[in-house]
């Protein structure tokens, strides 16, 4: 099965993508109007035009800046909160429902209130992205601390480790894999929050590009925006995987 299987998979996948493109190209302008479904070629031309004019790169740069900082702030805050709440044994049962509630509050629903509180600058957008990342990473970190094997803690106590040593040598390493997983899930949520913020509190960015092109019925630009967003999202996750899997002292925590 091995060698033959992989080649066959590649052939079928290529066929599938080509069929998809062909259906898209044929349907555009015949089954569906070109306003609703622009021709692939028109999308490509639009992408090239907007890349040359610099609008695409500018939007990507701004969106990446927002999602990067928002995510980073959320991760730092989330790890701190998760470790603190997880360490206080029994507290997780109390704050658990609160975080369940917070996780259920969609980032987009917070956009109006954030604008009300902080205006329309960069701060509310960063806060919305940081908020959802914070919730995801906190929950994951708390779970990690709770799941530290009791045997390890008892062994550490038997061997005479101090509270601080237990934290550094047992709890942190045992929790690391959960933290890394939470950070990875956080990327997806950060992008959801990014689009949410840029859809409503609009001035620049990829989300704004998509929304603006809808109002102007520039569908090719809308498709370019959606595809760029998909590429950025998967690119960010690939980059994260590459960094965490290639760094020796991190990769051993990513086995699960």
């Amino acid at each position: 099965m091995p060698g033959h299987g992989i080649r066959r998979t590649a052939v079928v996948a290529t066929l599938s993508i080509l069929t998809g493109l062909a259906v898209w190209a044929v349907a555009s302008g015949t089954l569906v109007s070109e306003v609703q479904l622009p021709h692939p070629h028109a999308v490509w031309q639009e992408a090239v035009a907007k890349a040359e004019s610099g609008l695409l790169w500018e939007s990507i740069r701004i969106s990446l800046w927002r999602v990067g900082w928002g995510w980073a702030i959320g991760v730092v805050a989330g790890i701190a909160t998760g470790l603190l709440l997880g360490e206080l044994r029994g507290v997780d049962a109390v704050v658990g429902p609160i975080f369940e509630f917070l996780k259920g509050v969609a980032p987009i629903s917070l956009v109006p209130i954030m604008i009300l509180w902080f205006g329309i600058g960069e701060l509310p957008k960063l806060l919305i992205i940081a908020y959802i990342t914070w919730v995801v990473v906190t929950v994951s970190t708390m779970t990690g601390v709770r799941e530290v094997p009791k045997v390890r803690l008892r062994a550490a106590r038997c061997l005479g480790l101090s509270q601080l040593q237990v934290f550094y040598r047992i709890i942190l390493p045992s929790t690391a894999s959960y933290v890394l997983l939470g950070m990875r899930n956080g990327i997806g949520f950060a992008y959801i929050a990014l689009v949410s913020a840029e859809f409503i509190a609009v001035d620049k960015g990829i989300g704004f590009l998509i929304m603006d092109s809808r109002l102007n019925l520039q569908t090719p630009l809308m498709v370019v925006g959606i595809i760029s967003l998909g590429l950025l999202g998967s690119g960010s996750q690939l980059l994260y995987d590459a960094i965490t899997l290639q760094t020796p002292w991190l990769s051993r925590f990513r086995r699960q």
Binding site: A13, S16, G20, Y191, V195, I210, G225, L229, G233
Partner: peptide
């Protein structure tokens, strides 16, 4: 193999980004 490319696309694009498209 047939559906995997589309699953990857769907999974990496936030569904919220498709709202303008659905409205269109």
């Amino acid at each position: 193999a047939w559906f995997d490319p589309y699953m990857r696309m769907a999974n990496s694009t936030p569904a919220i980004a498709l709202i303008p498209f659905a409205l269109l």
